[in-house]
Amino acid sequence: MPVQVLFYLFACVSVIAAFLTITRKNPVISAVWLVVCLFCVAGIYLLLGAYFVAAVQVIVYAGAVLMLFLFVIMMLNLRTGIVGQMRNLGIKLLGVLIALLVFVQLRLAFKGVSLLTGPELSADFGQAASLGKLLFSEYVYPLEVIAVLLLVAVVGALVLTGKESA
C-alpha cells in the first residue's frame, strides 16, 4: 500500500528533521530542518485527506513563518552558535527526564483511542470549499477573533520593533 509506505517515510523524515532542528548549532540550519519537518507533516495531512490544511501548512508555515525566522536570523547576523558555559545543567537534565515522563504519559493516554477506525470519507472531505463553508458559517465568530488576533500581532510587532522615538 503506497499510502502506508509514504506515511512511514514522512514520519521518519519528520522525526529526524525535528531532532536535527533542535540539535544544530547554527540557527539557519535549524530553520531549514524545521522546514523539512513541516513539509513532511504537510504530506501526512495530504495522506489524511486534509488538503486545505496541508496547503495552509505549506504556505503559512513553511512559507511565511519560516521565512520570517530566516529573515530575523539574517538581520541579526547570527552565524555562530552561542558560546559560553551551560547553566543549570542538572536541572535541564531533570527537565529532559520529565519530558520523557510526559511522553510515556501521552502514550498511556492515547492507548484507549487506538481502536478507532476511520469511516468512509465524503467526496469533498478536506476540500477548500467545504472547509470554507464551515469556517464562515459555524465558526465565523472564532474566525473573526483569530483575524483580530492576527491584526493585533501585526500592530504589536510593529510597536516592538519600531524606532524608539516615543
Binding site: R87, N88, K92, G95, I98, A99, L101, V102, Q105, A109
Partner: peptide, 24 residues
Amino acid sequence: QNGYAQVYAISFLLGVALVLGSLL
C-alpha cells in the same frame, strides 16, 4: 525564581506532568 526562563519552563512542564498523571 532565578530568572532563567528555561527553569520556569521546566516547572511548567512538571506541572503538565502532574496534571496528566492525575488524569491518568
